[in-house]
């Protein structure tokens, strides 16, 4: 974990005037990364994946779909670093293409969960009473489901389209957002600054959006990061089980599933998509974990002690 690679790149020299602030912020970030290398590794991984997903398979000289029968089932080489499959397609190119599908589905799923869960939590804590109790019972009920099995059943019944996958993967994490926002609003609702805003005539909606929400963003951000890791894992598992996206989408899960039949003769077919998958989940988990530790006063103490 504490390798040299984990050290942050050197900061740019201080610019005169207002630039000094960002210089300090950069120094602070560098110090934080040195004290807790997880953050640096995680952020670096995520940058890498997002970059690859954005640039896409154009990075590679090969095509994702057109077969090249002269180079069937070749192991990793300089021409094909991750090898080729049974009709001669370059695995590296397909793994690159898979990154955008994976991140796309995960982003949609996290957004759906956030947009359904957060308002539900905010309104139920504001409304209180029977509505609040009812929402909480429903959320507890949904949380009792195994999230993968629920997603599996939903996709199996309604068919695997991209929006359906967003919803199916999001469904079981709606309660998490609702809970976090609800308890955050409850904790802040009676604070002085909220009362002050209310006394100044701000409407309830304004108080919620402009006063309370900015103050409870930190735990929501942690949940979003960790939820990305979960969503990517569930999407891959669904695809692996044959219930996720199919052609023309290239999903890492499907690649591993198809590679299964050639495990003995061409293990690289299964190894590289799986590594790509593990890498992106690792990135989100590391960033999410270190964000959470930073917010928890007990572990924050331990972290600052470790830094000395």
């Amino acid at each position: 974990m504490e390798s040299q690679a984990a050290y942050p790149p050197p900061c740019p020299p201080p610019a005169p005037g207002p630039g000094l602030r960002s210089w300090r912020a950069c120094r602070r970030a560098a110090r934080a990364a040195r004290d807790d290398p997880r953050t640096a590794v995680g952020v670096a991984l995520l940058f890498l994946y997002i970059l690859i997903a954005l640039v896409g398979p154009g990075l590679s000289p090969y095509d994702t779909t057109s077969p090249d029968l002269k180079v069937r089932m070749q192991g990793p080489s300089w021409e094909h670093p991750f090898g080729t499959d049974r009709i001669g397609r370059d695995i590296a190119t397909r793994v690159i293409a898979g990154s955008s599908v994976s991140l796309h589905v995960a982003t949609g799923a996290v957004m759906v969960a956030l947009l359904l869960g957060a308002p539900l939590g905010a309104f139920s804590s504001y409304a209180g009473g029977t509505f609040d109790a009812l929402v909480q019972r429903v959320m507890e009920g949904i949380m009792a489901f195994p999230s993968l099995v629920l997603a599996l059943a939903l996709v199996a019944l309604a068919g695997a389209s991209v929006p359906m996958l967003w919803f199916a993967i999001a469904f079981s994490s709606v309660p998490r957002y609702a809970r976090i926002v609800r308890s955050g609003v409850l904790a802040h609702k009676e604070r002085e600054y909220v009362e002050a805003a209310r006394a100044m005539g701000q409407r309830p909606m304004g108080v919620l959006m402009k006063q309370i929400l900015p103050n409870i963003m930190a735990p929501v951000a942690v949940q979003i990061t960790l939820d990305f890791a979960r969503a990517i894992g569930v999407e891959a598992a669904l695809s692996y089980l044959g219930l996720g996206l199919s052609v023309p989408y290239i999903s890492w899960g499907v690649m591993v599933r198809e590679a299964q039949d050639f495990l003995e003769v061409a293990p690289w077919l299964a190894v590289f998509p799986g590594l790509a998958l593990a890498g992106v989940i690792l990135g989100f988990t590391l960033v999410g974990d270190s964000l959470r530790d930073r917010m928890d006063p007990r572990t924050r103490l331990a972290l600052s002690r470790r830094g000395q």
Binding site: V256, Q260, G274, A278, I281
Partner: peptide, 22 residues
């Protein structure tokens, strides 16, 4: 702990088959 949480189960299972069975 981090590896256990991040490595996808179906892939870990396949790698286990590859190493210990194949």
């Amino acid at each position: 702990v981090i590896l256990g949480i991040t490595v996808p189960t179906f892939w870990l299972a396949l790698v286990a088959i590859l190493v210990f069975a194949v």
